[in-house]
C-alpha cells in the first residue's frame, strides 16, 4: 500500500511557520532569511518531503521535462548521446524522461504516447521513420521535436546527425585503398541507419568494381554475434580479406574470433568498426573505426530544443555534423 507522503503543512508545522513560507523556500531558498533556510532544510530532511509537481504542471501547462527516446540502452552509443543531452538540460532546470523501444516502430509509438501523456515540453527521438499515428500525434501535440542520428532522411521539424551512407562509403574506400578486395559487411538490427550504411558500403564496392557481400541479422549487436558472423563469412567466402561492421561491438567480436582462430589482423583480414567507442582506443590492435560525434549530437539537440522552447524558430532544419575516419592498426 502506498504510504501517506508528508505534506507542505507537515513541514510548516515542524518549523512553526506558514505553508506559504515553505512554498516560497521551495521556489527559491533566497526568498526566506538564511537562518530560516537552515531550519526548513532540516525539516525537509527529517520528514523526507517529496515535492509535488502536479499543481505546477496544471497551472503552467509546463512540465520542465523533456522526453528522450532511444532504440536501445545496451548500445553504448546512446549513453554518450545522453551525456551530451543532460549536460545542457540539467543546468537549465529540465529533467529528461528516458524511454527505449528496442528498434520497434510499434514500441516507439507506445512510448511516445506515454511521454506525451506526461506533458513533456519537448521530444528528442532517435529515429527518422515513424508510424502514421506518431506523425499525427506529434503534429497535434505542438511541442518541439528533434530527430537525431541521421542527417539525410527528411525531418518532421528538425534533424541533427551524420550522413551514415557517406561515412560507410568513406570507410569502405579506405579499406579498398589499403588493398582489401573481398570485404564483407556485418549488419545487425537492420534499422534505417544500418540500411543507409549498407548502401554506402555497396556503392563504394561497386564503384571500385568489387562485389559486395552483406551478412544480416535481426538480433541485437553483441561481441558474440561478431564472432558468429566471422565464421559465417569464412564459410561463404573463404578468401575474405576485409570485414566492415555496422558498429564497434561486432567488429571487436569478429577481431577476437579471428585471434582465437589464429587469423592475423591486419595481415590476413582487415577489420573496421563504426562509432569509435573508448575500448577501440585501448585494444590490441587498435580498431579502425568511423568516429561519430555522439556527445555533440546530444548536446546540440538539447541546445536547439532549449532555444525553441524559448520561442525561437527552427534556425536550421538539418544540421549535419562531421564524422572522422580512424585508421587504427586493424586495416
Amino acid at each position: 500500500m502506498k504510504k501517506k507522503r508528508p505534506t507542505l503543512q507537515d513541514v510548516a508545522d515542524q518549523v512553526g511557520i506558514t505553508k506559504m513560507t515553505v512554498s516560497r523556500y521551495l521556489k527559491n531558498p533566497d526568498l526566506v532569511s538564511s537562518p530560516l533556510q537552515t531550519r526548513i532544510r532540516e525539516a525537509l530532511d527529517t520528514l523526507g518531503y517529496i515535492p509535488n509537481r502536479a499543481p505546477d504542471i496544471l497551472s503552467n501547462a509546463k512540465s520542465h521535462s523533456i522526453g528522450v527516446l532511444f532504440p536501445s540502452l545496451t548500445n553504448q552509443v546512446f549513453s554518450e548521446v545522453l551525456r551530451g543531452i543532460e549536460s545542457v538540460f540539467e543546468p537549465a532546470g529540465y529533467q529528461t524522461m528516458l524511454a527505449h523501444y528496442g528498434y520497434s516502430q510499434e514500441a516507439e509509438e507506445a512510448r511516445i504516447i506515454t511521454l506525451l501523456s506526461y506533458n513533456v515540453d519537448g521530444l528528442i527521438i532517435s529515429e527518422s521513420t515513424h508510424t502514421e499515428r506518431v506523425r499525427k500525434m506529434l503534429d497535434v501535440a505542438g511541442i518541439p521535436v528533434i530527430e537525431i542520428m541521421d542527417s539525410v532522411s527528411p525531418p518532421i521539424e528538425q534533424a541533427i546527425g551524420i550522413d551514415n551512407e557517406a561515412a560507410a562509403y568513406a570507410m569502405t574506400q579506405l579499406m579498398i585503398k589499403k588493398g582489401r578486395q573481398k570485404i564483407v559487411y556485418f549488419a545487425a538490427r537492420m534499422d534505417m541507419r544500418t540500411l543507409l550504411k549498407i548502401r554506402g558500403y555497396e556503392r563504394a564496392m561497386e564503384d571500385h568494381g568489387l562485389t559486395p557481400l552483406c551478412l544480416k541479422n535481426n538480433e541485437a549487436s553483441s561481441f558474440t554475434l561478431g564472432g558468429q558472423f566471422l565464421h559465417q563469412a569464412l564459410e561463404q567466402q573463404p578468401d575474405t580479406d576485409g570485414i566492415f561492421c555496422t558498429n564497434d561491438d561486432l567488429a571487436i567480436g569478429a577481431l577476437y574470433a579471428c585471434q582465437k582462430a589464429g587469423i592475423s589482423i591486419p595481415q590476413q583480414i582487415g577489420i573496421a568498426g563504426f562509432h569509435g567507442h573508448n575500448i577501440s582506443r585501448a585494444m590490441v590492435p587498435l580498431l579502425a573505426t568511423v568516429i561519430t560525434p555522439r556527445e555533440e549530437i546530444g548536446r546540440l539537440a538539447a541546445e536547439q530544443l532549449l532555444s525553441r522552447l524559448k520561442g525561437e524558430p527552427v534556425s536550421q532544419r538539418v544540421i549535419e555534423l562531421p564524422f572522422q575516419l580512424e585508421v587504427g592498426e586493424s586495416l
Binding site: P293, E295, E296, R299, L300, Q316, I319, E320, L321, P322
Partner: peptide, 13 residues
C-alpha cells in the same frame, strides 16, 4: 553560414 554551423560547432567542441 548554415553550411558552416555544424563545422564551427564541432571545432568549438
Amino acid at each position: 553560414d548554415q553550411d558552416r554551423f555544424g563545422w564551427l560547432y564541432t571545432l568549438n567542441a
